[in-house]
Design a protein around this nucleic acid. Structure first.
Length: 798
DNA sequence: AAGTGTTAAATTTTT
DNA sequence: TTTAACACTT
């Protein structure tokens, strides 16, 4: 029985039944490329008798890989699990785990994330005596990363730098950085690709092994590959030349990270015998949405011309709205989402809000919280970058591989063991001068000069770690984690803090444990493979964790509004899409506008194209006249991209709010909204249990002032020499003033909740000068008197 | 050594 | 607004 191919259009069919030789699929947005890929895999297996394990599909993100995996499983059925579906990075990790010893690393290498890299760079700068005021660590890291993307070694870098002092310095930094990584048997993200290429080049037998293994290679999002990835793929495909790449040059949005759009634009030059197939029929969006996308992208010059079309029908007008403030923008979006939900037009999960920078999520988030609409933020602060997670993972890393200097240094004084900066740098010196790892130096603590009593403490740390190691032997990640938590008292310490923030951290730790458990389950299921040793379990877990950018929060069946950057939206689709922040200077960014390189603007435009084409039915673009940028009010014009959309497609109903179509209404309005936002934040704070540190600090301020309240005019504080911190508080006070006469949502006898004190009952509300004084009897904190404006009390339903 | 407070500086976008 | 680095105190 053959596979079903009749649902494919003729171009898709041609692509899905391409057997051997290079193939370039130019797949416009929403043209069903994943469908084509999965069908082709199924077709190869069933019609051409290709062995599943000879097929390798490579994507960029775990999300994409997971999706593809799922769809392949559904289509192929038996044998599907043997197909290699992975990201570039995880594919390389697997190869390196097996063979990296051929190029002078240990197979138990660790993977450093960007945070780790930065720490290494700090050490490098210190040891090379570089003034980080003049040369920023970030700058060096950026240079190194692009060098690695281009497969340029430190040696080559230095060679090319001849004569240029700055370049030479960068070269020395690169060399030292790489040295340190090597000494710690550590690889950064870029090394994963680069060293695999190096391995392939230096060990032809290994390359041959993988060429035989992966005879049919498919690469998704090919437009985002960089040089190193290109070479990796080319090497793999060189023998059988069965390379199928799928991409859309109009959706290339990672040039800043080294993606080389030339890889797709020149594919036909590199593989002259390549078949080229264009998928231009869009199955996702309405014609009007496509018209808008086509019109915008038409302003770019360097591209393969193509025009999306659909048989889906014209659809609704797109919406454009301009607001005075980002807050109003958020209110509008939130209300529109709520309305569509109410009317049964769109579930929350089908209404996505997209923005250019993560910082923009803030206002939207607050408004959604305020309106009690469930949402998830995709991306943003990386789960695995949180302190508590990194701490515990550092323990696991140190247990797994004591050569991991960074991990050992991180935990040596967690919990506090009285080992401070001085001792650590003594150990470090000793380690470097004796060519020992940091941990080995710790073991010889008594021999380290000048360490004095510190030696005893270090000794104790070593004993502690050795004990953990012994107990960890043969255990899985979950048990090791639990052991670490118990022996270090990490969670216990947090529990004693009794703050919301600590509770939050504990919740994160719980999540980490479930992640570990999920990993163990997955391994158990896939146990058909070789009987890995127990140590590999911990290692595997650490490797996986290192490659996961964010906990996959879009999954799950809960109905939530997804919020994300335009970048993370690539590859996704939603019924109803909001492009928030269509302001010149935000999107396109200030950088792109002021750049003399016009391709910077073109990349922004492609990003806009990506955003527009995420929408299936409804597309709303919003803009705000003023926004708070780093606490400062900024004015913005409407994004040029909006003007690039033909007017007849837009329901351009600007300034729907009463009054004010005057672009010059200014300051007082901003102030008002600035302070209002604090009230909203207050409400948001009590709704969510997730408080940022900033909110916690603000809360502290509130408490201080609610005990000792006094009022100042905002202008007085601002003009005083008090400085920035106080100016902040002035805003809050303005908020209090504004609200002072306002009715409270709760009355005496009502149940209320407070961010810090939890739930309680209102005993008394009294007029107290400018504000109302509320007395609350809290269930766990006794009776407190507070001013209404600061208390941020939220009424509870009985 | 550890905690506190003050100041300067920074932002695209992420595997 | 938020973060990190530095100085200063205990």
């Amino acid at each position: 029985m053959g596979i079903e191919l009749e649902n494919l259009n003729s171009e898709q069919l041609k692509a899905a039944t391409h057997f051997e030789g290079p193939l370039l699929i130019l797949a416009g947005a929403g043209s069903g490329k994943t469908r084509v890929l999965t069908h082709r895999i199924a077709w190869l297996i069933e019609e051409k008798d290709v062995k599943p394990w000879n097929i390798c599909a490579i994507t960029f993100t775990n999300k994409a890989a997971g999706e593809m995996r799922e769809r392949v499983n559904r289509m192929v059925g038996f044998g599907a699990e043997a197909i290699n579906v992975s990201t570039f990075h995880s594919a390389c990790v697997r190869i390196l785990r097996r063979f990296i010893d051929r190029i002078g690393y240990g197979t138990n290498f660790v993977i450093y994330d960007s945070d780790d890299s930065k720490n290494v760079m700090k050490d490098v700068c210190r040891s090379l005596e570089i003034d980080t005021k003049v040369y920023k660590e970030r700058m060096f890291l950026g240079r190194i990363s692009s060098a690695k993307d281009e497969l340029i070694s430190p040696g080559q870098f230095l060679e090319m730098a001849q004569g240029d002092l700055q370049e030479e310095l960068a070269g020395r930094v690169y060399a030292e950085y790489q040295n340190r990584l090597h000494r710690s048997n550590a690889l950064d993200f870029d090394d994963l690709i680069g060293l695999t290429v190096e391995l392939f080049r230096k060990a032809p037998d290994v390359l041959d092994y993988y060429q035989e293994r992966f005879r049919y290679i498919m690469v998704d999002e090919y437009q985002d590959t960089n040089k190193a990835q290109f070479v990796f793929v080319s090497l793999l495909a060189h023998k059988y030349r069965n390379l199928c790449v799928v991409g859309d040059d109009d959706q290339s949005i990672y040039r800043f990270r080294g993606a080389d759009i030339g890889n797709i634009l020149n594919f036909e030059q590199i593989f002259p015998d390549a078949e080229v197939i264009r998928l231009e029929q869009n199955y996702r969006s309405t014609q009007k949405i496509l018209d808008a996308a086509n019109a915008v992208i038409a302003n770019n010059s360097a591209r393969k011309s193509k025009k999306l079309w659909t048989s889906n029908g014209a659809g609704d007008q797109l919406t454009f709205r301009r607001f005075h403030t980002a807050r109003e923008e958020a209110v509008f979006i939130t209300e529109d989402i709520a309305r569509k939900k109410r009317k049964g037009i769109c579930d929350y999960r089908e209404s996505a809000v997209l923005y250019r920078t993560n910082a923009q999520s803030r206002v939207l988030e607050e408004q959604l919280l305020y309106e009690n609409i469930p949402y998830t933020i995709i991306g943003g602060v990386n789960f695995y970058a949180r302190k508590e997670i990194k701490d515990l993972l550092a323990y696991l890393k140190a247990i797994d591989n004591s050569k991991d200097d960074l991990a050992v240094k991180r935990i040596i004084n967690i919990p506090k063991r009285g080992i401070g900066a001085t001792s650590i740098s003594r150990i470090d010196h000793y380690a470097v001068s004796h060519e020992l790892s940091f941990y080995e130096a710790c073991r010889m603590a008594d021999k380290i000069p000048g360490i004095g009593r510190g030696g005893l403490k270090v000794r104790a740390f070593v004993d502690f770690t050795e004990q953990l190691k012994a107990r960890a032997d043969g255990e899985g990640p979950v048990n090791i984690l639990k052991e670490v938590i118990e022996k270090t008292g990490y969670v216990e310490e947090l529990r004693l803090e009794m703050t919301d923030e600590a509770a939050d951290r504990i919740a994160n730790i719980d999540e980490l444990i479930s992640k570990a458990a999920a990993y163990e389950d997955a391994v158990r299921e896939a146990q058909a493979d070789s009987a890995d040793s127990q140590g590999a379990d911990l290692q595997g877990f650490l490797a996986e964790v290192a490659l996961v950018a964010d906990i996959d929060s879009l999954e799950g069946d809960s109905d939530r509004v997804p919020l994300m950057t335009l970048h993370s939206a690539k590859g996704l689709e939603f019924e109803n899409v909001y492009l928030a922040g269509m302001d010149q200077g935000i999107f396109p960014t200030y950088h792109a506008i002021s750049s003399e390189d016009s391709s910077d603007l073109e990349e922004e435009r492609r990003l806009c194209y990506v955003g527009i084409t995420r929408a299936k039915r409804f597309l709303t673009l919003t803009s705000a006249q003023t926004r708070l940028l780093r606490g400062e009010m900024m004015w913005y014009k409407v994004s040029d991209f909006v003007d690039e959309i033909p007017e007849e497609l837009l329901d351009d109903n600007r300034w729907t709010e009463s009054g004010a179509s005057d672009e010059n209404t200014g300051g007082s309005l901003g102030e008002k909204f600035g302070s209002l936002s604090d009230n909203v934040k207050a409400a948001a704070g009590s709704l969510s249990h997730k408080l940022t540190r900033a909110q916690a600090m603000k809360r502290k301020e509130h408490e201080e002032f609610s005990q000792k309240p006094f009022y100042l005019k905002a202008s007085q504080t601002a003009s005083s020499a008090a400085g920035k911190g106080k100016g902040n508080v002035a805003g809050l006070r303005t908020g209090a003033d504004l609200r002072a006469g306002a009715a409270l949502e709760y009355a005496e006898g009502d149940r209320v909740s407070h961010v810090k004190f939890g739930e309680g009952t209102v005993r008394e509300i009294r007029e107290g000068g400018r504000d109302k004084e509320v007395t609350v009897e809290f269930d766990n904190f006794g009776v407190k008197k507070m001013f209404a404006a600061f208390a941020k009390l939220k009424k509870l339903d009985r």
